[in-house]
Design a protein around this nucleic acid. Structure first.
Lengths: 339, 339
DNA sequence: TTGAAAGCGCTAACAC
DNA sequence: GTGTTAGCGCTTTCAA
């Protein structure tokens, strides 16, 4: 396992580095290097376990064949799944991926972006905090390839792959209405994320279209970093005699998990007393008691598409790809809604 | 956002690249560069948003300040969590991390190892398939820094961070015994992983120490890639009149999830008829019906320790660190065991 | 204190 | 068909 370099194999074979480099990069034919020479080179490289130094290669080529992935939190099952699909697709296209979590912190996200740029990633996939408009604009101005996933900047034209948050949420709410629920609460997070806003709007629109009023008292927005502690009061408040809700829409999976926990502690029967439904899928939502209905996001498509758009951009292949995709969610009905 | 290089700032300031490089790497004082010059350089760099090209830097320095992470599957919540802790710790120590999933395929794992070595990662953290002994030995011979997590090669001396699979599993089984269960089955996967073997041994040892016999009929080992379809028969078989078990130990979280699903479909009451307990924590195990007892692995410690050992090795700091760690799992008792 | 110059390993014009 | 040579952007030795 002794390290061997390009020049070693050139010397050993009495050839120039050029010839070796060309052949090793599959450009032997195109440069009319004799089949025989090619074979000698390939064999020797193989036998001696030649491994090109990608940093040197990258420096010379001006690219790293690496893409950077920035998500709020890689241990969130939602992002972990997307990451997995990104990784797989990237691999087939010859790219590695480096990842980092921003922890929903705009400043951290900015730092990560630059850290990755320093590392000469060829492109970036970002599930942004949506608070780095300036940096995103700079990326765009610099013509640097990137695609936003999960969250986009509605007023900036960029590549993105998101889901129809409005539609998904409206569907969920309508499903509850269809099942006779009339007093439907919403539990969301305090956030300026467009995705979260859209989910709330979807909920509201469904109610309004049904001729119902929106009741601010049963529309809870919790601190994203303190939702666990705030959930107790929120739920207690909603199920109290005053507001007496009969259903709750949760705008994301961890809220649903936490909310269900509290409902159980308060001995509220789900779904007979209160039906629940949630955006996003937790993976175990079908095992939970009761199994939770959900608007499932197509994580595989999100990941695959993002990589395809990005690589298309990086390699300027100009394949016709819809580079602003809004994917549909899938309504999965389970027991938590009542039959 | 025009790109600016070291030589640009040297030219602009009428200095040499050396001076600039030294100052930017915080070695100004040590090289007795005047405070004033230092300030000029720093200010200029700051103002013009100088970003060193890490590939060039890496090439020159012979290191990338990147560590590679190879896991079976990054979308497995267990590895995703470890990855998150690895990432965080690495960041504080100045390292980035690239990751890839081997999908439990030894050949893929080997390729990934080499791919990462090509990319000049400074070290590797691997949750190995445990089928690449030769490659691991090569790494060791080459004195390349790496640490194994989750799975180690029992007969090779390497750095590793694993958990006490035997003890954790024995504890789980003993807990069931203590609660009066006498006919305890095991559902595991067909695997040569030492971790899986140890979990089985822990189970068996607990039984034997209690004076019970090990009944091969209620010891199921499923194909890791077909466990979902095989689970039905396994469970059916175990709960049938012939074997009539009153408890099941699952050796990993996804088996428990799948097994519980089947138990429910067969209308078996958990825990009254059959108690269950599982190695690993799924995240929603406390929401599941019934909440599943578990031997929880310290994912944070696994990640943190792995990085610390690795970086210690990379930087040859020789800080005294126990570089072969066997961490303890934590028994979390929930309803699935019966009170 | 500062600068010139060599070198990290690879690619790619261009010349032979 | 093949070799020479000049970079890619940064670090670092050594001399001034």
């Amino acid at each position: 396992m002794k390290k061997i370099f390009l020049k070693d194999i050139a010397a050993e074979l009495n050839l120039s580095k050029t010839a070796v480099s060309l052949v090793l990069n599959n450009r032997g034919d195109e440069n009319k290097i004799s089949k025989e020479t090619q074979k000698r080179i390939l064999d020797f490289a193989q036998k001696n376990n030649y491994r090109p130094n990608q940093m040197a290669r990258g420096l010379s080529l001006g690219k790293s064949e690496t893409i950077g992935l920035i998500v709020p939190n890689i241990s969130d099952i939602f992002y972990a799944r997307i990451a997995h699909h990104i990784e797989l697709r990237a691999k087939t296209l010859g790219y590695n991926v480096v990842f980092s979590s921003s922890n929903e912190d705009a400043k951290m996200e900015k730092e990560l972006m630059y850290s990755m740029l320093n590392r000469q990633v060829d492109g970036l996939i970002i599930a942004s905090t949506q608070k780095n408009k300036d940096e995103i604009l700079k990326l765009r101005e610099a013509n640097f390839p990137f695609v936003l996933i999960d969250r986009h900047y509605p007023d900036i034209k960029t590549n993105y792959v998101i889901v129809d948050n409005f539609g998904g949420s409206k569907n969920m709410t309508q499903h509850l209405l269809k099942n006779g629920r009339r007093n439907i609460g919403l539990v969301s997070i305090k956030s300026e994320l467009d995705a979260i806003l859209q989910r709330r709007l979807g909920y509201e629109t469904a109610l309004v279209e049904e001729g119902l009023e929106i009741n601010a008292g049963i529309l809870k927005e919790l601190d994203p970093f303190a939702y666990k502690s705030e959930m107790k009061d929120a739920i207690k408040d909603m199920v109290s005699g005053l507001t007496g809700i009969d259903a709750i829409v949760f705008t994301t999976h961890y809220l649903a998990a936490s909310g269900l926990r509290e409902l159980k502690l308060l001995d509220v029967k789900v779904p007979s007393e209160v039906a629940i439904i949630s955006f996003d899928e937790l993976g175990a939502f079908d095992l939970v008691d009761p199994p939770i209905s959900t608007s499932k996001q197509p994580v595989d498509d999100i990941g695959n598409l993002a990589v395809e758009i990005l690589v298309n951009d990086i390699e300027k292949k100009n394949i016709k790809i819809e580079n602003q995709s809004i994917l549909q969610t899938q309504l999965l009905i389970r027991k938590s809604c009542g039959v």
